[in-house]
């Protein structure tokens, strides 16, 4: 069972899933870095993205083309949610934001149950079962696309945060809100932009995920726990941490599934989670707690 002919394809499959985890975690870590809260609505917003891509597919739009619709759509959803609900209801207290996002996730999930029923749905695309021969392994085409696209999107996100005016303002607000107000940054707008960009990552992840996954009202739970682990493993608020952590967790899950059986595959993830908290609570790339 430990033969490289089996291990290598499993690791590569894990990497592809890990890239999607990384994308989800990047959104979570961005929102955490700026707003200093864990967004409990992250999973349900991914679910919203998956349903969006699902219905667009039913209307005849390929999931990869749906990126053009779903990324802006989820961005505006996130922006509006932060601007009109979370920010207004939080009254400046971080604990309130936590509860508001938790409440929002319950509302969103139950609306999905009401409108879409609890059925698990999948889509059929002509390329769903097409395999790409990478030499060492045969990998399903949707996974190759998801991996490449997730890395490209991570690079775009990095450029946005590191090299643009908006990114500078986001990083400024993340560490020094009062200083940001004093140079004339509209802090509430930056909060909403960060939430919007974090949510837009979910729109992208949803479109990449749909051809190789399923959608149901509770599908977000699978990802939000994993993404949370990735964020803690990589270091809260760290970008490179989320990316590398995501890939690492993807491989762990895949190899764990291979060695322990599919249903126990996620156990490895939480072992890593506990080990991180015990031995390096600030994460692989996090700054040490001051």
């Amino acid at each position: 069972m430990l033969d490289p002919i089996i291990l290598l394809p499993a690791a590569i499959n894990g990497l592809t899933m890990g890239a999607v985890y990384a994308l989800v975690a990047l959104g979570l870590t961005l929102i955490y870095g700026v707003l200093h809260i864990i967004n409990f609505a992250h999973g349900s917003l991914l679910m919203v993205g998956l349903y969006g891509a699902f219905f667009l597919h039913r209307a005849g739009l390929d999931p990869y083309l749906a990126l053009v619709v779903m990324v802006p759509a989820l961005f505006f959803t996130g922006y509006a949610l932060q601007w009109s609900v979370i920010g207004k209801a939080s009254h400046g207290s971080d604990q309130n934001i936590l509860l508001v996002t938790l409440g929002a996730s319950i509302v969103i999930e139950n609306l999905a149950l009401y409108f879409f029923s609890a059925d698990t749905r999948t889509i059929d695309t002509p390329y769903s079962f097409e395999m790409i021969d990478l030499g060492v392994a045969l990998v399903p085409l949707p996974r190759v696309i998801a991996f490449a696209a997730a890395l490209v999107l991570a690079a775009v996100l990095w450029f946005l945060i590191a090299r643009t005016d908006l990114g500078r303002a986001i990083r400024a607000v993340a560490k020094e809100r009062q200083g940001a107000r004093l140079v004339g940054i509209d802090v509430d707008h930056i909060f909403a932009m960060s939430f919007g960009i974090g949510t837009a990552c979910l729109g992208a992840a949803a479109c990449l995920l749909l051809p190789m996954f399923y959608v149901s009202p509770h599908v977000g739970h699978v990802f939000v726990l994993v993404a949370f682990t990735v964020v803690v493993l990589g270091g809260m608020g760290s970008f490179s941490g989320a990316l590398i952590g995501g890939l690492l967790i993807g491989v762990t899950e895949s190899l764990g599934g291979l060695l322990l059986g599919e249903s126990l595959g996620q156990m490895g993830i939480f072992l890593i989670f506990i080990a991180t908290l015990m031995f390096r609570p600030s994460g692989l790339f996090g700054s040490r707690l001051s």
């Binding site: 005016d165 500078r168 303002a169 990083r171 400024a172 993340a174 560490k175 020094e176 009062q178 200083g179 940001a180 004093l182 140079v183 004339g184 940054i185």
Partner: peptide, 26 residues
């Protein structure tokens, strides 16, 4: 424009980025 007590600079940004943000609004 106020230069606040305790400086309130952006510690995670470079000196250049801090200065550039000074002209963010004006």
């Amino acid at each position: 424009v106020q230069v606040p007590e305790g400086r309130r600079i952006f510690p995670n940004l470079t000196v250049l980025e801090n200065l550039e943000l000074g002209s963010y609004r004006r």
